[in-house]
Amino acid sequence: MSIVLKLWSLYVRGTNRWPVIATIVPFIPVVALWSIAANSGMFPRAFFPAPADVARTFVALTYKGILPDYLQDSLIRLLTGATIGVVLGIPLGLLIGSSKWAHRVCWPVLLFFQAIGDIAWLPILLIWFGFGLTTMTFVIVYTVLFPIVLNTVLGVESVHRDLARAAQSLGASRMRVLWEVTLPGALPNIITGLRNGLGYGWRALIAVEIIVGTSGIGFMMFDARRAGSTVEIILGMIVLGTLWYIVDAWILAPIERATGRRWGLVTS
């Protein structure tokens, strides 16, 4: 057996046992290329730093405590916004989804306000609330809310009518049907909505931190931009990408798959 086959076998078995490897290995050649390009002197170093520079800055900023602090600020903002979005969004979605009239009245309004988009609210929010936490939270809630509401409505509508009828004929009250049938039935869609919402919310947070900017990863990046420090910008991007990748690929996507697959609501 050739050495190539042996290595391949090792890789396949390794990734099968630890899927993380399959996620990390593809980045090795990219970082290597990046390193070669940066060290070749094709671009000025200040414009295009090498991986080693970014790693050094990472260590330095972590040691000084700036990076952990900013990261914490960003995450708390996102989490607060997302929680409020979920608490408001799910009941609203259930209401709109289970009443034909509410649906008719609210759906166009929802689509329109979703179309305005979070960032476009910033100027008027700044007039209303000033540069502060309220403005940031409002934007995040706004961003997270729509995907959750729209997907909850879709979820409620996807629940088969016979399921609700079955529950009613087994003696469930309207509230019980909502709690025992509609909500679990819509859950896969709700989680998809949450996943999309957080994806948009994350980006909105960065924009808000750049514009409103007092602290946070977005602020760090834009502050670095003002100082012309590419290293910190790239570090910020890597932190953002990595963090979101972990949250999305290892937490949200598995939950989405688990609810959908387990119940056989999603095939493939």
Partner: peptide
Amino acid sequence: YFDPYAGSQ
């Protein structure tokens, strides 16, 4: 064929 999981032909 080579089965990478079993590591054998």
